[in-house]
């Protein structure tokens, strides 16, 4: 079942006449891990920002549950239907780890009654203890921030989780742990996980690898 579908999507930055994406069509299904690979500037991050609802395509359409993202409330879509893990984490630095997650749950109107307890439990699952969870973001290591970013992305139980170079700043041990989380989210919890990466290790855990070059899909390959 398609949870997300890109149909002949084109994108060009304002004030330019060159398409960054040139007719991209991809179907994303639940319970699978997708990796998008390609050189820097090939359009990977642009695809992620479009399916994250952070930007809108110039042509074509991106459908979520059959609805074009251009026509729905994208604030609500970002808050509830999709979780984004940014390469540079993009956490609120003046807040603690726990506050970042609780705020995200508040924004999405998460019905959980004890949001704080839920957030502590979630971070605990990701290997962040309660003492670390009470620290401000800038007091955390890169790996801890990445885990907080993941916790924030999944706190509202979205259908789709996207991650932009999620292991770029991590050591190999932490990278492995993070990849286990992603595969578990897809294969155990049935989420659709989309990861843009240069990393072979990440690509190795993907159910399907999407190659992109200069805004055009060059290959789609299912891994064994």
């Amino acid at each position: 079942m398609n949870v997300l579908e890109m149909k002949d999507v084109r994108y060009r930055y304002e004030g330019t006449d060159k398409d960054v994406l040139k007719g991209i069509s991809i179907e994303f299904k639940a319970g699978k891990v997708y990796t998008i690979v390609g050189k820097s500037g090939s359009g990977k991050s642009t695809i992620l920002s479009l399916i994250a609802g952070l930007d809108t395509c110039s042509q074509g359409e991106i459908l979520h549950g059959g609805s074009d993202l251009k026509k729905i409330d994208r604030d609500s879509y970002r808050a509830r239907d999709i979780g984004v893990i940014f390469q540079s984490f993009n956490l609120l630095t003046n807040a603690t780890a726990i506050e970042n997650i609780v705020l995200s749950m508040n924004i999405s109107k998460n019905p959980e009654k004890d949001k704080k307890a839920f957030a502590y439990a979630l971070l605990g699952k990701l290997g962040i203890d309660s003492e670390t969870a009470g620290r401000r973001i800038l007091k955390l290591s890169g790996g801890e921030q990445q885990r907080v970013g993941i916790a924030r992305a999944i706190a509202n139980n979205p259908d789709i989780i996207i991650a932009d170079e999620p292991t770029g700043n991590l050591d190999s041990v932490t990278e492995s742990a993070i990849l286990d989380i992603f595969t578990s989210l897809a294969h155990v919890e049935g989420k659709c996980v989309v990861i843009a990466t240069h990393s072979k290790e990440v690509t190795a855990v993907a159910d399907q690898v999407l190659g992109i070059s200069e805004g055009v899909m060059t290959s789609t390959a299912a891994t064994a």
Binding site: A52, L54, D75, S76, Y77, R78, A79, R80, V84, F86, N90, L91, L92, T93, N94, L103, S104, I107, S108, R152
Partner: peptide, 11 residues
């Protein structure tokens, strides 16, 4: 900070 809040879906 505003960008992060907007990315999180805050109106």
């Amino acid at each position: 900070e505003i960008g992060v809040l907007r990315a999180m879906g805050m109106k």
